[in-house]
């Protein structure tokens, strides 16, 4: 059992690609607009550049205490304020910060602007762990934003990853040479970056496989694959169980010296069957029913439980059957 458990754990570790809880690593810098001439205004009715964060997780993440900076040598340049519920980003939602260099104007106003900024970094609340960074193209046009073509997707810097693995990640993610980031035609603060109509999976499938043959073949292959793997695993487990059972049976045979009582001893002097014989028969029946001497039955717990039947008309619930009858004076 221990060996099987170990195999399962090791297999899971081997096939896992990297397990992250829903946490700071799920936050991405999703979109930035450095030069806001005619776009959205802040709560004071003024226009300035903005930074959009996106929560890629399927749970809430509080970004209070996280740091944003345009200078890697100063990772704690701007801290997202603590003590306000507005810093909690719900699942798959956005938070917009105004980069006007005036942090006293409101909750989400950074102490730097995006004028001429080419790199933007997001750090965890320890001020050391880099969560994400993006490189903003020089000479960004006015009223155009730069960001992830699909929300949260594209190249990013996961915690503890090297530049090499970062490149590998961008390739694995199939995000193309631009790393999944581009100048976006239509800035969308606090909204999805995907502005084109997206085909549903069903529509894609209709175009790709109008007769359903490909899906049928794929799905049946997967169903068979699943069940063939299960078959293989349980075939080997079954063989192992049979082997163990045979060994056990052999051990029982070897360890037991069965003393067959002589015919004279089977019966006692008064003609009744000897108690030892009765005990031997009982043990034999027990071993048989528990599959030690036979493979006919499943191994059961052997525990007998009597449950009280709560039906009113049963013997258990019937007062007339369970209580003593009152004496009747005749």
């Amino acid at each position: 059992m221990k060996r099987i458990f170990s195999i399962i754990v090791v297999s899971l570790l081997l096939i896992s690609k990297g397990v992250f809880a829903q946490s700071p690593v799920d936050i991405r810098i999703n979109e930035v607009l450095p030069y806001n001439i005619s776009g959205v205004t802040d709560e004071n009715g003024e226009r300035c550049g903005w930074i959009e964060l996106f929560n890629t997780a399927y749970g809430m993440v509080d970004v209070a205490g996280f740091y944003l900076t345009d200078n890697k040598d100063n990772p704690t340049k701007y801290m997202i304020p603590k003590g306000n519920n507005a810093t909690i980003i719900p699942l798959r939602k956005y938070l917009v910060l105004y980069a006007d260099g005036q942090p006293n104007k409101g909750l989400f106003h950074t102490n730097f602007t995006l004028n001429g900024v080419t790199h933007l970094y997001l750090y965890d609340s320890d001020g050391k762990t880099l969560l994400d960074e993006i490189e903003i193209p020089a000479n960004m046009p006015e009223d155009k934003s730069f960001g992830r073509v699909k929300d949260g997707e594209g190249v990013h810097v996961p915690v503890g990853w090297s530049k090499r693995s970062l490149r590998k990640n961008s390739i694995d993610s199939k995000v193309g040479a631009d790393g999944g980031l581009a100048i976006l035609e239509h800035p969308t603060p606090a909204l999805t970056n995907t502005t084109k109509a997206v085909q549903s999976k069903s529509e894609i499938m209709k175009d790709m496989d109008p007769y359903g043959v490909i899906l049928a073949l794929t799905a049946m292959s997967v169903v068979f694959l699943c069940l063939v793997i299960l078959y293989t695993v349980f075939k080997s487990i079954g063989k192992r169980a049979l082997r163990k059972e045979a060994e056990k049976r052999e051990a029982v045979k070897e360890s037991k010296v069965v003393k067959i009582p002589s015919v004279a001893n089977i019966k006692t002097a008064d003609g009744a069957i000897n108690e030892e014989v009765i005990a031997a028969i009982a043990i034999a029946c027990h071993l048989y029913s528990n599959g030690i001497d036979s493979s006919v039955h499943d191994v059961e717990s052997g525990v007998l439980t009597f449950n009280r039947d709560i039906l009113n008309n049963s013997a258990w619930g019937s007062k007339s059957l369970t209580l003593k009858e009152e004496p009747i004076i005749k």
Binding site: G238, E245, G291, D298
Partner: peptide, 24 residues
């Protein structure tokens, strides 16, 4: 059918779930 031990019966749902859920 041969006898099935309780150990096998316990392993079945665990391994069965892990295999099927990882694939689908």
């Amino acid at each position: 059918p041969r006898a099935v031990s309780q150990q096998e019966k316990i392993i079945f749902p665990i391994v069965g779930f892990l295999i099927t859920a990882f694939i689908v």
